[in-house]
Amino acid sequence: MRKYIYVIFSFVLTGISVHSHAGEQASTQSVQHSGQASAHSAQAVFSGLIASGQAASAVSAVPLALSASAGVVSGEAANALLDIANTPIGTPLPITEETYSSAGPPPDEALKGDNKSDTKP
């Protein structure tokens, strides 16, 4: 009988332990940790970098292989980017030295004019 009591006690404690951890939840770290890493404080850090000009707020991304046909490449770098879009897979690709994040721009920037990026998280 006592054996069963100990087993039940163990299960109850187990439940308490699990529940207490569940309370800390923001993103599950487990067998698969699929939580959005950029949530909460991590996002806040990158928002700070954007505010200080160390990182850019990215508002969209289009696969470069498709950019040419989609007509989304513009500006001075258009020709170079179109060349990249058409190079065979496996050819070394350029990467910007800039850091970009899904964090939105600072609120004061977002409030200026018709800045569509103000809907970013």
């Binding site: 993103s27 699929s34 850019a56 990215a58 991304a61 470069l64 490449v73 500006g75 990467i95």
Partner: peptide, 26 residues
């Protein structure tokens, strides 16, 4: 990761990678 043309909030276009994920909701 998909090699992409990334457009920034100030309108610049940068070559880099975008990450496509399935994330569980917090």
């Amino acid at each position: 990761a998909v090699y992409s043309l990334i457009t920034t909030a100030d309108g610049r276009q940068l070559p880099g990678y975008a990450m496509y994920n399935l994330y569980q909701r917090s």
